[in-house]
């Protein structure tokens, strides 16, 4: 059995991981994968992979973040798997956008995006804003959500995301544009109407 306790008494043993880090990792996975069963499996896979790799843990990171690092790879694997079973189809609308002169010339999907009616940067300290934001992310549909999760939340490079999703960088740019527009739309609506609900 790997016993890292000898080197660092702060490190928790795997038998304690579920109670200590289970909920944290589960929430993280659920926010990206949506499906509770898949998220729970992801947590389990993470712990088992963590036990296997425990002798490589050098104690530089909090073990919680080390485990999260393992789980981020599991999440990417999970998305890759679901894309293999259901390849990404390009909608006609997106196809037309990519073919448009303007997009080809400038990489700009629209010259006149709807404005925000409030400044989102001013709301960063507001808990309510983030509650609405998360709700909006939940609303995104695949493949827009997958693109958003990988590129914007997991902060993967364009190359990595395109490889995982088997799409071109141009199409990724379009998907992220769709995500941005939808998030802005729902956020705006929910945020401006939040008192009247």
């Amino acid at each position: 059995m790997p016993n890292v306790e000898k080197e660092n008494s702060n490190i928790k043993q795997p038998s304690e991981w579920v109670d200590l880090y289970g909920d944290y990792l589960y929430r993280y996975a659920l926010s990206r994968l949506k499906n509770p069963e898949v998220a729970a499996d992801c947590v389990q896979d993470t712990f088992l992979a963590g036990i296997k790799a425990l002798d490589k843990f050098d104690g530089r990171l909090d073990i919680k973040f080390w485990l999260r690092g393992i789980m981020r790879n599991k999440i990417v694997d999970q998305i890759r798997k679901s894309i293999k079973s259901q390849t990404v189809d390009i909608s006609q609308e997106d196809e037309a956008l990519m073919e448009s002169m303007w997009f080809k010339y400038s990489g700009i999907a629209t010259t006149n995006p709807d404005p925000w009616e409030f400044n989102p940067r001013k709301q960063f300290d507001n808990k309510e804003f983030w509650a609405v934001f998360i709700e909006c992310v939940d609303h995104l549909k695949n493949p827009i959500k997958q693109a958003f999760v990988l590129k914007m939340l997991e902060d993967k490079t364009t190359e990595e995301v395109c490889k995982v999703m088997d799409i071109t960088p141009n199409y990724l740019w379009v998907l992220i544009h769709r995500a941005r527009e939808q998030l802005k739309g729902i956020l705006k609506e929910k945020w401006l109407n939040r008192d009247s609900v």
């Binding site: 991981w17 579920v18 589960y26 659920l30 729970a40 088992l48």
Partner: peptide, 19 residues
């Protein structure tokens, strides 16, 4: 959003098995 008890039990068993 937390792991339910059933999941917790299963994962704990798996961890014990692996250890």
């Amino acid at each position: 959003s937390v792991l339910n008890d059933e999941h917790k039990t299963i994962i704990k068993e798996e961890i014990a098995k692996n250890l």
